[in-house]
């Protein structure tokens, strides 16, 4: 049985980021959480999104290439020597 104002799973997955970002209105938040309590599939989905964010947080940017780094340090030395008069 589905009530007209009840969220469907399909709608819930589109609100996950708003939920995690605390951007839902209080009423929307209640609807979201009411669905969640009763729906193991959406609980799993939310947990997957949380783990995805967690894994994304462990991704590190590739480090600066040595040649580019040297070039920038040269830029700094040049600036230090004379460019700063500008």
């Amino acid at each position: 049985m589905t009530f007209p104002d009840e969220l469907s799973c399909r709608e819930l997955v589109e609100l996950v980021t708003d939920y995690l970002e605390d951007a839902l209105s209080p009423a929307e938040r209640v609807r979201f959480e009411e669905h969640l309590i009763a729906c193991p599939g959406c609980q799993t989905y939310l947990e997957q999104m949380r783990r995805t964010i967690d894994v994304l947080g462990r991704v590190t940017e590739e480090s600066l290439e040595p040649a580019a780094r040297d070039q920038l340090l040269d830029l700094f030395r040049n600036w230090k020597r004379g460019d700063r008069v500008n």
Binding site: T2, S8, R10, Q48
Partner: peptide
């Protein structure tokens, strides 16, 4: 992965639960 909106039962719900991790 969801039942269609006009499905007689569970419209818009998971057709099968996403496998947990």
């Amino acid at each position: 992965r969801f039942f269609p909106a006009d499905a007689p039962r569970w419209p818009g719900h998971w057709t099968s639960l996403p496998p947990g991790w």
